[in-house]
Amino acid sequence: MKKEINATGQACPKPVIMTKKELDNINEGMITTIVDNEAAKDNVSKLAKSLGYEYEVDAKSDNEYHITITKGDKEEIEKKSDKVTKGNSKDVTIVFASDTMGKGSEQLGKILIKSFIYTLTEATPYPSTLIFYNGGVHLTCEGSEVLEDLKELEAKGVEIISCGTCLDYYEIQDKLQVGEISNMYTIYERLKNASNTVNIG
């Protein structure tokens, strides 16, 4: 079974919702979602990834992306989700709600957070996901003093996601240097699925 969803012109998170709805409707098959911007492409891809479905992205142009998701049998899906939790990373999600650690002195808080993120690079197993929202998104953008550490973590397989609404609010969407832009759906999914969530900030 093949189906096409035209999500061009739809504001975030509509393309994700439309795709999810169709995927829920079918037992197995292929669904191609067409979107007109990169953020939507990433979000739909991430949806597929988080559900454990195979997907392929075909960039037709700068404003036309086709994401084809294959919903296969359950056994296969479970096998894939197993892989994510095994290996070098622990099923822990760390949330950075601001660019300082704790309340009190901002100067101290900024140093503590640098020191904390450095520590993450030194201790294994690594967390599976780092989530940055509100003031925390400054840490993943240009000018952040922890970019090098975050890039190292990303290279080691740690998923790094920054809240798109927040990047937009601070008008630093084009300054993102590491990881991916995401939405509240993905953030909630990571928080909900992790066996452990640690809040910093």
Binding site: Q107, L108, I111, K114, S115, Y118, T119
Partner: peptide, 20 residues
Amino acid sequence: YAIKADTIFNRHNIKYRTIP
């Protein structure tokens, strides 16, 4: 002193890192 050092090192062209 560590906080002061972080600010001062930041002004110099030297690769450093504030760590625990």
